[in-house]
Design a protein around this nucleic acid. Structure first.
Length: 271
DNA sequence: ACGAAGCCCTGCAAGC
DNA sequence: TGCTTGCAGGGCTTCG
């Protein structure tokens, strides 16, 4: 399931093949995603040249003259670069044909993803305007987390997955960062010290950077623009390892539910 | 303002 | 073997 590292891996994979290339045709086979794909998307985008390919949280933005195509991969989405005559398969919902003879193909079995058209400055759009800082930016650190968590009773893991607080951290990387920092995921956010938040912020940056360097985490679905999986799964310490021995102390990892999300942790290493 | 729950969707695994 | 059931989950939306 694409989180920040997987989305960034995808962005990097498609960037050079899109920039300064013209979109010559847009084919929507299935408009019913998280929200309907706007009927006028094809008309708005056809003939436009891609200027920039950027990312905000888990959103990819294809910036063209007069607006941007916003793409969210949801839980099972992927973008691939293919030769434009390649026959579409199941769940290949949208094709962006390029003047290079290639196409950008959006596939999403669960259809939790979305493709929207944003006019003007995309960062003003309601979906983006309230997002918290990028976790890999300088504006994100332990002092920020400490300040924003005062008085909050939610589990710290739930807080980390709140995109209004910090953007792009999902279940995998919240779980891994908390293990690395030695903090129990069910601890109340408001009762974690400033020092521990500083450790945690550093761990978040480290785990995200390492995952990006390895091309992201492939559990089942994720593939990059070239159709290849990411290799971070092999280094996961707790996510998906419920009831297996902790890699540090061999205690069996516990699996609980927090805010409807499965959460795995070591009750000995994480306090 | 906060927090918990509901909803959208398909694929896969487990149970009978 | 073939059904049914449960779970996975991002994040917006609704409700308390």
């Amino acid at each position: 399931m694409p989180e920040l590292p997987e989305v960034e891996t995808t962005r990097r994979g498609i960037e050079s093949s899109l920039i300064q290339h013209r979109i010559v045709r847009v084919l929507v086979r299935m408009p019913k995603l998280r929200w309907p794909i706007p009927a006028e998307l094809s008309q708005l985008v056809t003939g436009k040249t891609v200027q920039r390919v950027t990312r905000r949280a888990k959103y990819i933005l294809l910036q063209v003259d007069g607006g941007s195509v916003l793409i969210h991969l949801g839980m099972s989405g992927s973008l691939r670069l293919l030769q434009s005559d390649l026959t579409p398969g199941k769940h290949d919902h949208v094709d962006f044909h390029l003047d290079s003879g290639r196409l950008l193909r959006f596939n999403d079995p669960r259809r939790f993803g979305s493709i929207l058209w944003l006019e003007n400055d995309p960062l003003d759009h309601p979906l983006l305007v309230n997002l918290g800082p990028e976790p890999l930016s300088d504006g994100f650190d332990g002092d920020y987390l400490y300040g924003r968590s005062r008085g909050r009773k939610v589990a710290i893991k739930t807080l980390l997955m709140n995109n209004q607080l910090v953007a792009g951290i999902g279940n995998i990387y919240a779980s891994e960062a908390l293990f690395m920092a030695g903090i129990r995921p069910d601890r109340r956010a408001g009762r974690v010290s400033r020092a521990r938040y500083r450790t945690l912020a550093a761990c978040i940056k480290e785990v995200l950077n390492r995952a990006i360097a390895m091309g992201g985490t492939t559990l089942r679905d994720f593939i990059n623009a070239d159709g290849q999986p990411g290799y971070f799964k092999q280094t996961l310490m707790v996510y998906g390892r419920g009831n297996q021995p902790c890699s540090k102390c061999r205690t069996l990892l516990k699996q609980i539910r927090l805010g409807q999300r499965s959460s795995v942790f070591c009750s000995r290493c994480q306090r």
